[in-house]
Each structure stands twice: as structure tokens, then as C-alpha cells.
Simulated assay, not measured.
Amino acid sequence: MVALQDAVGRYGIWSSELRSEDPAVRAEIPEAAAELEELGFGAVWLGGSSGVQHALPLIEATSTLTVATGILSIWQYEAADAAARFKELDSAHPERFLLGIGASHAQIAAQYRRPYSAMVAYLDALSASGVPAGRVVLAALGPKMLELARDRAAGAHPYLVTPEHTAQARELLGPGPLLAPELKVVLDADADTARATARGYLARYLTLPNYINEFLRLGFTQDDFAGGGSDRLIDAVYAWGDDRSIRRRIDAFHAAGADHVALQIVNGGTPGVPAPLPRAQWRRLAEALA
């Protein structure tokens, strides 16, 4: 059995495009997954509230790539259904799939209530259905959820965090569990346009209290949340710039205690228009990491 940290490697790709329902994009996904494996990425994270079913085309197109949900919402998918799909996939392709689950946000999930207790109950149901804890990671931000990721899962996959959060998470998790933060990347060396792209994407997250509260714990203030985010906030949660600057920023997460960094390419894009797979940017990112 390959250790989870070795299976996912140091770098992965986080992408909601890889679970696109657009026919043109879907047709390209298997080829893109195979290329990501060839480029040296150890894992892909199916961004957004992704179900287990989205993993199969990527797994079938590759031979070693770990495919993970980043994340499956516990409010959107019943534990029994998630467990059944997990077991079916794992039976056909052992140890190729990682079930990332999270409690989402009150503004998104209509059933949202007592997220910690709900997560405990969900983990109980997965365990009772035979899903091994070593194949589950939690989208943990706060201390209680991080401790739950340490005690009841293989580790944590925090979204929209800083190296400082990563260091705190590693201290809570201890040396064993997987710590795989997500990091957004803008491949643009111009400070004004890079930060403008970043703000356009970050603004949606600054309406969600879970992220705001975490930023406040990290020392940011309300002033940092205006207008899509201050320069200080943008620079803390994004890697942007030339290849060397981006590599330095990614390295900062590893230095803070991350085992693996899940990299999300952020482009301008148009809301409501299906986004193409950013394959040229993935290639450039691989070159920067080589």
C-alpha cells in the first residue's frame, strides 16, 4: 500500500472545469487528465460540490493519478449514497480515489445546521458503511474541524488559506495526517491586472462568514474585505507573478507544513459561460515546478 502523501505527491491541480457538464469540455477531460499525470501532478481535485461519479473518467484515463473530490458537500450527497459509490469505484480501481468532504456554508446549503455535529454523524455513517478513514479528508478550516480531520480521517484539505493557517493546521494535525491546502494561481506578472483578476474571483468568497471569520483569526480586518480584497489579502491567498514568484509562494505552503498543495488556475472568465480547460496554464505551472 502506497502512503497517501506519496500517492498524491507534492503538487496537484484543483479544477471545477474537470467536472464540467459542457459536452465540448467533457470530451476533452480524459486526455487532459492523462496529460496532467504526464506533467507530474500527483492528484487532481474536482472543485466545487462534486460527487464521486465525476471521478471515474479521470481515473480510467490515467494509471497512477489520485482523483479527489474537493469537496463533496455533506448536505448535497447522502452518506449512504457517497459510501456506495466510493466502494464501487474503489473496488474497480483500488486506492485511486480520495473522498474529500465538507460542511459547505449556510448561504449555500439550505439544510445547514450544526456543521460539526453533522460532520461527525456523516463520518459515522461512512465508517458504518465500510469506507476507510484513510481514504477520507475534510475541508477543515477551524480548530475543531481540523482536530476531527486528525482523529477521524486521513487529514485535511483546507480551501482559501494562507501559509500562516497551514502552519497552525499542521500544529493541530501533528506530523502524520495529510495536509493538502488549496492555493489559487494567477499567471500574470503585472501587479495591477493580476490582482484585478484575483479580486474578481475572490469577491464571491468574501460574502461567506466561514472564510471571513478565519481571516479575522489570522489577523486581517474588515478593511481587508472591501472591494474584492485588499492587496494584503490578495497576496496572502494567491500566488501570482512570474514563474519564480509563483514557485516561491507555493514553496511557502510546503515550508509551513503542507504535504501537498492543490493549485487552482484563476483566469478572468465570464460568469455563466462554460470555462475551457486551462491546459496551457497547467503546462506552464508544471514547468515552474519542475
Rank of each mutant, 00 (worst) to 15 (best):
R85T: 09
H105R: 05
T69I: 08
Y112H: 15
R10K: 06
I59P: 10
S16G: 08
S129M: 07
A61G: 11
V25A: 06
I74L: 15
D81Q: 14
A34M: 04
A68M: 13
S104I: 05
E21G: 04
G51E: 00
I71P: 02
L72M: 15
V67R: 00
L39S: 07
S73W: 01
I29M: 02
Y116F: 15
L126A: 13
L58M: 13
A27N: 07
P57Y: 03
S49M: 14
G42A: 03
G12R: 01
A133F: 09
L148Y: 08
V137S: 09
E35Q: 12
P115V: 01
Y11T: 05
A32E: 08
H105F: 09
A79W: 09
A92L: 04
H93S: 06
V44S: 02
F41D: 06
I71K: 01
E60H: 01
G42Q: 07
K144M: 10
L138G: 02
G130S: 08
E78V: 06
A109K: 11
S15C: 04
I59H: 10
L141H: 12
S49F: 12
E147L: 15
A24D: 13
E78G: 15
A34N: 09
S117P: 03
G42K: 03
Q53T: 13
L141Q: 05
K144P: 12
R10T: 07
Y77F: 14
T62Q: 08
E88C: 05
A34I: 05
A68I: 06
L72I: 12
A133V: 07
Y122T: 10
I74V: 15
R114H: 14
L46F: 00
A140E: 09
S50V: 11
A34K: 07
P115D: 02
S91N: 04
A92P: 01
I108K: 11
E17T: 07
I13F: 03
W75C: 03
E28C: 00
Y122D: 14
A121W: 08
G12H: 02
A103N: 11
W45G: 02
Y116H: 14
R10Y: 03
E147H: 15
R135K: 05
Q107M: 08
D22V: 01
F41N: 02
A80G: 14
G142Q: 15
G130V: 01
S50C: 15
G12D: 01
M145N: 12
S63I: 08
A128D: 15
M119H: 10
Y122H: 13
A33L: 10
A82E: 09
A79Q: 10
A82W: 10
V137K: 03
A27F: 06
A83W: 06
S73G: 14
A79L: 11
A139P: 02
G42R: 00
V131T: 10
E21Y: 07
A118I: 04
S20A: 12
P115I: 04
A82Q: 02
S20M: 11
L18G: 00
A118P: 08
S129N: 12
L141N: 02
L58T: 07
S50H: 10
P94R: 05
G102T: 01
A118S: 13
L36E: 00
S129E: 10
A83K: 05
